[in-house]
Design a protein around this nucleic acid. Structure first.
Lengths: 194, 194
DNA sequence: CTTTGCACCGTAAAACGATTATGGTCAGTT
DNA sequence: AACTGACCATAATCGTTTTACGGTGCAAAG
């Protein structure tokens, strides 16, 4: 019981501090102090500051995946509704994932190589899910057949989604524009449709 | 004749050096030396280093606008072809506008407030052109009626375009993915269509 | 009017050496 | 096994000095 309590306490405090001050401005001494644990305890549970941050972001990503999986696993949804619900939920959850926002800067100035795997894994996972939805829509005869260029189309589409994350989450435009993200999705879904 | 020659020479050399080294790592002494002009000449023609860079970027943007205007002004093109040609040409020209790429970093680390007007003006211009194309398509009965939410839809769409610029131009993914940008455009156009 | 070359200026940036803070380690304790 | 607090190497910060930068002014020349 105690192991979970300390590890979770550290993760909790770390999540808050990383979210508030960013990775580089948050020190392990500070996390230890606020968590009321010895700094050595941090290193007992996490190999490094990088591993701690990676796990903090992984928790956010796993939360995203589990919430999206409810949509993905709902076989009563037709493909066009499913992709719409998926994308809307995606943006909604990521809007609250403040440590994930921190990693968006990785392409530009604060480079976290140690976190590339996590981000690549999410891209890979997401590409697979969207591919499934679209293929299901093709099978259901809802969507046009895109099977001959699906892979690169999905690559570009993932770029579009990630590109939208910058204004939405780093420039705080999500609240203003999210209601209208719908409209763009309507166009997307219609474009995919038969 | 001489006036144009010196000013153009400065712009030419500046464009190359800013493109190669970026705004901050390029000095006015260096521009003057390579242009074989006195530094005083630079300040005769341009109020400041910022004004020089702004004009260098403006030249790229004006080139973009004039090339796109050939498409925009071609009334033989129907709206769906026009928007496709517009977007493809847009990315193609911007791929070569290396000083414009420099300004893409403005949102993240190298901030050029002095250039915000130029970038905002381009967004405004572009929004207007795309709006015109879509409205024309509505009039031609090619596109669905989107008039009730057109403004915000265009805002989000501009975000999407700008979001794509990061991987395309800052991460050198344009060559690989531009052939497939087409496919995404097909979906977009179909989504807009009746 | 346009351009030059030169000297000059204030201050920002870079360089430097000293000091402090950080991520991480480890032996001891519970 | 889980946790601690003292310690370590070095990265980061600090204060000071030096250098480089954007910009200016001016007389002379074209």
């Amino acid at each position: 019981m105690k192991i979970d309590s300390t590890k979770n306490k550290i993760l909790q405090v770390a999540s808050k501090l990383f979210s508030r001050y960013g990775f580089y401005k948050t020190s392990m001494d500070e996390i230890a102090r606020i968590a009321r644990r010895a700094k050595g305890s941090l290193y007992y549970h996490f190999k490094s500051k990088e591993e701690l941050f990676t796990e903090v972001v992984a928790i956010e990503i796993n939360n995203l995946k589990s919430q999206l999986s409810e949509i993905l696993n709902n076989n009563n949804l037709s493909a066009n509704i499913k992709i719409k619900d998926y994308l809307i939920k995606r943006m909604e959850i990521l809007n609250t994932a403040s440590n994930y926002h921190e990693t968006l800067k990785a392409d530009f100035f604060e480079h976290f190589e140690f976190i590339d795997n996590l981000r690549n894994n999410l891209d890979t996972w997401e590409k697979k899910q969207i591919k499934n939805i679209i293929q299901h829509g093709i099978t259901e005869n809802i969507f046009e057949n895109h099977n001959n260029n699906m892979e690169v189309l999905l690559d570009v589409f993932i770029m579009v989604l990630k590109g939208l994350e910058i204004p939405f989450f780093l420039q705080n435009k999500y609240e203003k524009y999210s209601p209208h993200f719908d409209d763009l999705l309507k166009i997307l879904i219609k474009g995919l449709s038969k």
